[in-house]
Simulated scan of single mutants.
Amino acid sequence: MEVNFNLANACLLTDTCINLTNRTMELNLDLANASAVVTVNYSKIELWLVGCGGTGSWLAPSLVRLGRVLSQQGKQVKLYFVDPDHVESANVLRQCFCDAEIGLNKAKTLALRYSLAWKMEVTAIAQPFQPKWIVPTYNTLIIVTACVDNAKARESITQVLQHNTYRPAPHIWHLDCGNSKRSGQVLLGSHLSTNPNEYDFEA
């Protein structure tokens, strides 16, 4: 479907909407009130990508690129791609795979492709994610990026945050990415509790 943007019908950005051929789309500007996340200066960083399909396959090269940048800054970086699924013909084009990769495991395919491209070692795990794989170690920041499509998988990934309960500063962060046909969301968190009284906020 071709979408024509009619500038004459567009609302100002401050009105938080635009009109696309008489169809209004609300813009969520919550990010304007977001706060920066400042972490401890860790010397070791683990980047986990859980789910290598519709969202994860497109995010994968950026994570490896980030790992390369951090590595050049002197950080010890480990990269992990996790997905038990295999590439199917229906995945080609919509996901970041081609016909030659049909039948191959998604995590292994992306790990091989981007480890060669960026000269970074990427560990591929062709199994459903297990929270026990996340083991906090000294001076290590762990970021688990979840690109999964079901609540059970999200709940499993969220459990890794329990390791932050007894630490003054969170060592593990969960970046959750999800989408539907016309919308998407990205959430970042470091604790399981939703009670603000359990957090020690600094001015």
Rank of each mutant, 00 (worst) to 15 (best):
L7Y: 04
A8G: 02
A10T: 14
C11E: 09
L12N: 10
L12D: 11
D15K: 13
D15F: 01
D15V: 00
C17V: 02
I18D: 07
I18L: 12
L20G: 00
L27Y: 07
L27C: 01
D30W: 04
L31T: 06
A32T: 06
N33F: 01
A34V: 00
V37N: 09
T39K: 00
Y42C: 00
S43W: 01
K44D: 00
I45F: 07
E46I: 05
L47E: 02
C52A: 12
G53H: 05
G54Q: 09
G56Y: 05
L59Y: 09
L63F: 01
V64W: 04
L66N: 08
G67A: 11
Q72P: 01
G74D: 04
K75D: 00
V77A: 05
K78Q: 14
K78A: 13
L79P: 08
V82I: 15
P84Y: 09
H86W: 03
H86I: 04
V87E: 06
V92F: 04
V92M: 00
L93P: 00
C98P: 01
A100Y: 06
A100P: 01
E101N: 03
E101K: 04
I102D: 04
K106F: 06
A107W: 07
A107T: 14
K108H: 04
T109I: 05
L110N: 04
A111M: 11
L112Q: 11
Y114G: 08
S115I: 09
A117L: 13
K119G: 01
M120D: 00
A126R: 05
A126S: 15
P128H: 15
P128L: 11
P131W: 07
P131I: 01
I134N: 04
I134G: 03
V135P: 03
T137I: 10
N139H: 08
N139A: 09
L141C: 06
L141F: 09
V144I: 07
C147A: 15
C147V: 06
C147H: 10
D149R: 05
N150L: 04
A151E: 14
R154M: 03
T158S: 13
T158F: 03
V160A: 07
L161Q: 13
Q162E: 12
H163I: 02
N164H: 15
T165A: 14
Y166Q: 13
Y166E: 13
R167T: 14
A169W: 02
A169F: 12
A169Y: 14
P170Q: 11
I172T: 14
H174F: 15
H174R: 12
L175M: 05
L175W: 12
D176A: 15
C177G: 11
C177A: 14
S180R: 12
K181D: 15
R182V: 09
S183N: 15
Q185C: 13
Q185E: 14
L188N: 05
L188G: 08
G189Y: 07
S190W: 13
H191P: 02
H191N: 11
H191S: 10
N195L: 08
P196T: 03
N197S: 14
E198R: 00
E198K: 13
Y199V: 09
D200F: 13
